[in-house]
Amino acid sequence: MTAQPRFAVILSGCGVYDGTEIHESVLTLLAIDRLGGLYRCYAPDRPQLHVVNHLTGAVAAGETRNVLVESARIARGAITDLAQFDPAECDALILPGGFGAAKNLCGFALDGAECAVDPATERAVRLMLAAGKPIGALCIAPALLARIVGDRAELTIGNDSGTAAAIDKMGAHHLVAGPGEVVIDTAHKIATSPCYMLDSSIKTIAAGAENTVRALLTMMGR
Rank of each mutant, 00 (worst) to 15 (best):
H173F: 01
E114I: 00
D160L: 05
G180K: 08
I148H: 06
I167Q: 03
L144K: 04
I135F: 07
T163E: 00
P119R: 10
E122R: 10
G158F: 03
P134K: 08
V125T: 14
H173K: 05
G136L: 10
E154C: 10
A153S: 06
D160E: 11
P119K: 10
G162A: 07
L155N: 10
G132V: 14
L144P: 09
K169C: 00
A116H: 14
L145F: 11
I157P: 02
A113Y: 07
L127R: 14
G112A: 14
C139W: 07
I157R: 03
R147A: 15
A124W: 04
H173N: 00
K133Y: 07
A166W: 03
A166Y: 01
V149F: 09
C139F: 08
E114M: 02
G136H: 09
A164T: 07
A113T: 13
A165M: 00
V125H: 11
A165K: 04
A137D: 12
L127W: 10
A153L: 03
P142K: 10
V176C: 00
L129G: 12
S161I: 06
I135L: 08
A130L: 02
A130E: 15
D118Y: 04
R152C: 00
V117N: 12
A146K: 04
C139V: 12
H174Q: 02
A143R: 06
M128K: 12
K169A: 15
G158A: 04
L144M: 11
N159Q: 14
G112V: 09
G178R: 09
E154I: 11
R126F: 13
E122I: 03
G136Q: 11
A131F: 09
G136W: 10
H174M: 01
A124Q: 05
G178H: 05
G180W: 05
I140F: 04
G158C: 03
G171E: 01
G150T: 09
P179G: 13
V149L: 07
T121M: 09
P142I: 10
R123A: 13
V149I: 15
V176G: 00
N159V: 14
G112P: 06
A131T: 12
L145G: 15
P134I: 12
G178L: 02
P142A: 13
E154D: 10
A172M: 01
V176R: 08
D111L: 05
M128P: 11
P179E: 11
I135K: 13
A166N: 07
A166D: 11
A113E: 15
G180E: 05
M170Q: 06
V176F: 00
V117Q: 12
H174S: 05
G158L: 02
D168F: 00
M128I: 14
A116M: 11
G150F: 04
A166G: 02
